[in-house]
Design a protein around this nucleic acid. Sequence first.
DNA 1: TCATTTTCCGAACATTGTTCAGTTATCGAA
DNA 2: TTCGATAACTGAACAATGTTCGGAAAATGA
Lengths: 202, 202
Amino acid sequence: MGAKDRRENEVVQMRQAILNAACNIAAEAGWREVTVRKVAEKVEYSPAALYEYFSSKDAILVALMREGFRLLTLDMRSVPESGDAVERLAAVAQSYWDFAFRHPELYQVMHGLDGISFGTAETPQEAKDGFIALRDAVRAVFPGNSALERDLYDEVDMFWAMLHGLVSLTMAGRIKGGRERAALLVKPAVEIYIAEWQKEVR
Amino acid sequence: MGAKDRRENEVVQMRQAILNAACNIAAEAGWREVTVRKVAEKVEYSPAALYEYFSSKDAILVALMREGFRLLTLDMRSVPESGDAVERLAAVAQSYWDFAFRHPELYQVMHGLDGISFGTAETPQEAKDGFIALRDAVRAVFPGNSALERDLYDEVDMFWAMLHGLVSLTMAGRIKGGRERAALLVKPAVEIYIAEWQKEVR
DNA sequence: TCATTTTCCGAACATTGTTCAGTTATCGAA
DNA sequence: TTCGATAACTGAACAATGTTCGGAAAATGA
């Protein structure tokens, strides 16, 4: 029964090829241009064949969304502990920003930007993991245990919102000076939050 | 030549009817369900007839985006001066939030959410007007003239990003506790910014 | 009243996601 | 190896999308 295993490998390879193809098209021409037929052509299969590997086009997008959150979480988690928790939180924010513009297509599919949307896919576990990664980084900036009783969800949500807002407006071309100038706003924004939070804790 | 004027009125009325129809469908079923044929049916015309009033479906969306920004700007501008600039800025932020959830379809089309996107429509004047309205509210919280030399674009961008981020994540269902809990974050978020800015100015 | 222009519609076109009958390839057992 | 069954894949079609176009209908101005 080595044949079964080999076939299984081929399946995951094929699925990955489909995901890559979709991503590449999106990166080059935007998600609007990502069509089942074009993806099929890129993997050299018939359009109908894709439905053996994904139940629908939406399923492909959902898979990419989850992979995107997985990668983002990985990025944030891999920011080294630098002794100074504040410094690290700033670095995490930076890695968030960097990820968004290193993989714009992924970021877009993760947040339904650029004309993507799939029927109310509930928040995937990978996204929750990302939230947790962010929460851990935030939690570390609270020196004592004073605020550790709370779940810090408010702080994390606000922090996340600010990051997503910056990325989102920038990608939409709504920031004068574009990405270059917007990038300069990340660190000051982080510092604003930190300063207030630290004041809160005394 | 009263006939010409009357016809002109009919045209703007027709255009408005089309915009309303599109908006209503979006409000009830989401932008994915907004189709040329359905809009046409709702205004009791043939699909082809719409193209006498709008050059494309995208043109309809763009018109709605602009109207959305116009209304949002109006809302923010109509927040009364309450003596206390800080209080007013908070009220402006609240009116931003309220607008977003009073007209979710408009907010979505304004920011390319929910699967909307039209070929890189450059930032319309109405959006810039909204930015200015926000800037004026921010500018007022700076007591002296110390910071009035600067354009305050950084502060406004960050403020806007935070508001948009909160709305955006909430609409995407990414905030635990949903809209109700997220609404409670608006005021604290505003206060954080204000506190830091005031510290800056001394 | 009549010629002309505007307004509107029916029908079509290309492209989209998706399905399905059928063909081809693959595999496990005799 | 050979055969029957299962899986993999394709071609053609379907309905729905945005859009166009020739012509009908209506409004307009003389």
